[in-house]
């Protein structure tokens, strides 16, 4: 289903986002050789995920969890190694990244759906479901720029979670909106995770990982430290964190 082989990811820390002519001149004049400083965000990662499995990833900040998920989702290409995937992937993208604030809610459902890779027929068929879940039927023709942030989050969440993907990538369980909607959105995500799809799940909540995952991969400094049953690994990780 998902097979990750020898995946390494090297970041060049020397990439200057703010390249300037001034800096270039200084570099030439001072004849200082630019130090190539690399950072291996991931180092020889190997794992396989079977169909229907729910895999959790734990580890400290900077351990490489999000980078790994980005590579699996195809957003980044690994420096070396390869990722083989069978089935369509749904990355739970940051809510509303594909919205255009000048467009109405209705138009944004189609736009954002297209960004997520849905077809027109699919969105047509699911349109009412999306609208009902978001509870925004009265605001369909209102430009999203007039929405409150909670309404935007609700709409985005409803669009993103309407699919039944074969592979779901979850970076933290989202609960958005007011308390009632938070409950609803959390339940929706949990039912997606436990609904038989393959899930890659990153969370800092050890409780959620324990409850939802079959297996856990513990990452540390870009390497797999341990793989095993969720409860066991989580407890070990928890203990190591407390020192």
């Amino acid at each position: 289903m998902i097979k990750v082989t020898d995946v390494s990811m090297k970041f060049n820390l020397g990439i200057e986002k703010n390249f300037s002519v001034k800096q270039a001149f200084i570099d030439i004049l001072s004849r200082k050789k630019k130090e190539k400083s690399y950072f291996w965000a991931l180092d020889e990662i190997n794992f396989e995920v079977e169909k229907g499995e729910v895999i959790g990833f734990i580890g400290n900040n900077g351990a490489g969890k999000s980078t790994l998920l980005k590579i699996v989702a195809g957003v980044m290409k690994p420096t070396t190694g390869k990722v083989e995937i069978q089935g369509n992937i749904c990355p739970m993208i940051e809510l509303g990244a594909g919205f255009d604030y000048e467009l109405t809610a209705r138009e944004n459902i189609y736009l954002n759906g297209a960004v997520l890779g849905y077809s027109r027929e699919f969105i047509d068929g699911k349109f009412d479901e999306i609208v009902d879940f978001s509870e925004l039927r009265d605001f369909l023709e209102v430009p999203v720029r007039n929405f409150s942030s909670g309404m935007i989050a609700r709409l985005a969440f409803s669009i993103a979670t309407i699919v039944d993907p074969e592979i779901l990538i979850v970076d933290e369980i989202l609960s958005v909106g007011d308390i009632a909607f938070q409950q609803k959105s959390e339940n929706k995500m949990k039912s997606m995770i436990t609904g038989g799809t393959t899930v890659l799940f990153v969370s800092h909540s050890i409780e959620q990982i324990k409850n939802l995952c079959n297996r856990v991969i513990w990452l540390e400094h870009g390497k797999i430290k341990k793989v095993g049953p969720a409860v066991e690994i989580c407890e070990e990780y928890y203990k190591s964190q407390l020192g």
């Binding site: 255009d100 000048e102 736009l111 960004v115």
Partner: peptide, 21 residues
């Protein structure tokens, strides 16, 4: 082929936004 719908959405988005106001 897969992304032609997205392409169409992006074009129509630009069109709508351009004249909306």
């Amino acid at each position: 082929k897969k992304y032609s719908f997205l392409l169409q959405q992006l074009v129509s988005r630009d069109f709508k936004v351009k004249y909306k106001r």
